[in-house]
Design a protein around this nucleic acid. Structure first.
Length: 648
DNA sequence: ACGGTAATAT
DNA sequence: TATATTACCG
């Protein structure tokens, strides 16, 4: 029966790959099994069949390495397909479920349980001809090496994403022409389109406009000039593999809308609201939006923004807006609804650390998403008004989840995060060389994903951009790309806003990374010299992230006390508002945000203090809760006057 | 062919 | 929801 590793895991060796692929076919119906076998044979696979699921189990347990893939009926006496699926997965084999039930739930169940595909009977030859891709996927790493280079070609490659089609099909089963099969409709009805290349999911992956990506987009736009920034040029500029002109056009469309809104807002003097846009939709943009900053076209005076009158709740993510530039309107935008989200996110994360893959965990995000903050956080009422939008939650998670854990690569630059069903394909490409120093790349990819993915997502509901702290203040051209001075924008923060960023702490002279408060972070920046800054960043990235613990409170200013009783506030406020918050203990707070660039540059440190860590979430939470009611959000909010934002 | 936009789909 | 796709128009 089996030959030796045809396809086995690592190979790629096999030249005629799918040919000879060892398939274990299981179906309790003799007829079905025969048909299946026949079709599999036509595909030139090597077939091992059995009508007894138990037998199949044995085979798998004993000789899993004799198979490359398992295709099994779901409904069987004795051990059903799911059991087999389970075992198959244990063996790390791709398992395809077969069933005559095409209802959503059945399919969902199969997929959720890990089936790499769920085929509805009668199965067509066409479908079987493509199953080999699941084998490839399982061992994607090894295949990548082989194929990799080719696809990576640079420039405007739209390769990956765009093509839904198959591009690299390389050797496929010989089409032996058949498809003919008379029977079997080819129905593609369910969308089984054919090719699926390696992603089992044959759908075109969606581009996830992560902060990083957005940032690149923004940079591109800046460089090109707003007026000249057309999709194609932006695309070229970004030079991201797989990104299509359409993707860019679409994003551009949104971006422009966002800018427009801002303008309107400003013109009308509506600061808060305007941006406001309460559309959460634009948040992201806000943060990154480098243009405005640079252009300064219309920025709101910070003062206005700050007016306390309106803000109610600030969103952490916002603050970050470090772009600040003074906080321009844009920064504000970002906030909104999510504020509460952050908190949640935090907690959530804490509570449920990573976990779930497809299924959501218990508390889950979903809840958050819909629910208002209050639900989870009962305690946090103050914050709680806004709805959290977490739509992306799942998606994000999925996308990042796997890779997220590692921060590692710092430099990744042009990756797209795609969302596929649950499979993410990061496309990688060359580094862009331009801007953004290390920070950027690394942070965003690594960190943000984590955060968001894991559960944090709730924090920033809409996630994608929000989190960005990035500061892009300078046009890239103008900016010094690397180096000291933190002036440049490059600092991107990873993901989600504050939380992600860890702040640097300067402890006696040296800096360490601590918690991620923006405030802290910013301040530190001030404090530090430029040169150091760089270093730190690096550190931060590495180190801090690891710890990233809590995000920042959504409320901006929340003051926390750590175990030591040190209080800290996080959030903007201080600097911005200039009104520091004090907490009862009289400790100081640490984080202020210094938002302005110039300030930063000028190096005025305000106070920085950092305490460190609140590792313990519990503590934090408790604190938050307590404070919440009093200060936390409110205070901040008040300061900022964001009240209006968040709509109820 | 491309760009912009709006509507609509996923 | 965010993004993609489509259709129209210039």
């Amino acid at each position: 029966m089996e030959k030796k590793g045809f396809v086995s895991s690592e190979d790629g060796k096999n030249k005629n790959f799918p040919v000879g692929m060892r398939v274990l076919a299981v179906d309790d119906s003799a007829t079905c099994l025969r048909t299946l076998e026949e079709l599999l044979l036509r595909c030139k696979y090597h077939v091992t069949k059995t009508m007894e699921s138990r037998k199949a189990l044995e085979l798998l347990r004993e000789k899993s390495n004799m198979f490359d893939l398992v295709i099994s009926d779901v409904e069987m006496p004795d051990t059903d397909g799911f059991k087999l699926l389970e075992i198959g997965l244990e063996m790390d084999l791709p398992v395809i479920m077969l069933s005559s039930h095409s209802d959503h739930d059945s399919v969902m169940k199969g997929i959720i349980h890990g089936a790499c595909d769920y085929l509805i009977k009668p199965v067509s030859l066409k479908e079987l001809q493509n199953i080999w891709q699941h084998v490839v996927k399982k061992n994607i790493g090894s295949y990548k090496k082989i194929i990799g280079p080719s696809r990576q070609l640079p420039p405007s490659s739209e390769s990956d994403l765009a093509t839904s089609g198959s591009k690299k099909r390389k050797e496929k089963v010989n089409d032996s022409g058949d498809e003919d099969d008379s029977d079997r409709d080819d129905e593609d009805g369910d969308g089984s389109e054919q090719d699926g290349e390696e992603s089992s999911t044959r759908k075109k992956p969606r581009v996830v406009w992560s902060q990083e990506l957005h940032q690149k987009f923004v940079n591109a736009v800046q460089q090109l000039g707003l007026d000249k920034a057309v999709p194609k040029k932006i695309l070229d500029f970004m030079n991201i593999d797989g990104l299509t002109r359409e993707n860019v056009a679409s994003h551009l469309q949104k971006y422009r809308l966002y800018l427009k809104k801002i303008d309107e807002g400003q013109q009308q003097n509506m600061s808060s609201d305007a941006f406001g846009t309460r559309d959460s939709s634009y948040y992201h943009m806000a943060q990154l939006d480098g243009l405005r900053d640079y252009t300064s076209t219309r920025q709101l005076p910070s003062s206005s923004l700050l007016s306390r009158s309106h803000l109610t709740k600030f969103h952490p993510s916002v603050y970050p807006s470090i772009n600040l530039q003074g906080i321009n309107s844009s920064s504000f935008n970002s906030q909104n609804s999510s504020s509460s989200g952050n908190l949640f996110g935090t907690y959530q994360r804490t509570l449920f650390p990573r976990s779930q893959s497809v299924n959501v965990s218990p508390l889950e995000p979903l809840q958050f998403s819909t629910a208002k903050s209050s639900s989870y956080m009962g305690d946090y009422k103050s914050i709680g008004d806004r709805p959290i939008v977490g739509s992306s939650f799942l998606d994000n998670r999925m996308s990042f989840g796997s890779s997220s854990t590692s921060f590692p690569s710092a430099s990744s630059n042009n990756n797209l995060m795609l969302q596929a069903n649950n499979y993410t394909q990061p496309l990688h490409r060359a580094s862009d060389g331009n801007h953004q120093s290390c920070l950027e790349g690394s942070l965003s990819n690594s960190v943000s994903p984590n955060m968001s993915a894991d559960g944090l997502s709730t924090r920033f509901p809409s996630n994608s951009w929000q989190g960005n702290l990035k500061t892009n203040r300078f046009p890239s051209n103008s900016l010094p790309l690397n180096h000291h001075g933190f002036g440049h924008d490059q600092v991107t923060y990873p993901g989600n806003g504050l939380g992600d960023c860890s702040s640097l702490v300067s402890g006696g002279g040296e800096m360490q990374c601590e918690t991620p408060l923006l405030g802290d972070f910013m301040q530190n920046m001030n404090t530090l010299d430029a040169s150091k800054w760089e270093e730190q960043n690096c550190n931060m990235m590495n180190t801090s992230f690891g710890n990233v613990e809590y995000p920042l409170p959504a409320g901006d200013n929340m003051v926390f006390r750590d175990n030591n009783n040190v209080t800290r506030s996080k959030g903007l406020d201080d600097s911005l508002m200039m009104s520091p918050i004090e907490d009862g203990d009289g400790q100081e707070y640490v984080g202020k945000l210094t938002m302005l660039d110039h300030e930063m540059n000028s190096g005025k440190p305000e106070n920085v203090l950092v305490d460190n860590q609140h590792d313990v979430f519990d503590d934090i939470m408790n604190e938050m809760m307590k404070q919440d009611e009093n200060n936390g959000m409110v205070s901040v909010a008040t300061r900022f006057g964001l009240d209006s934002f968040p709509p109820p």
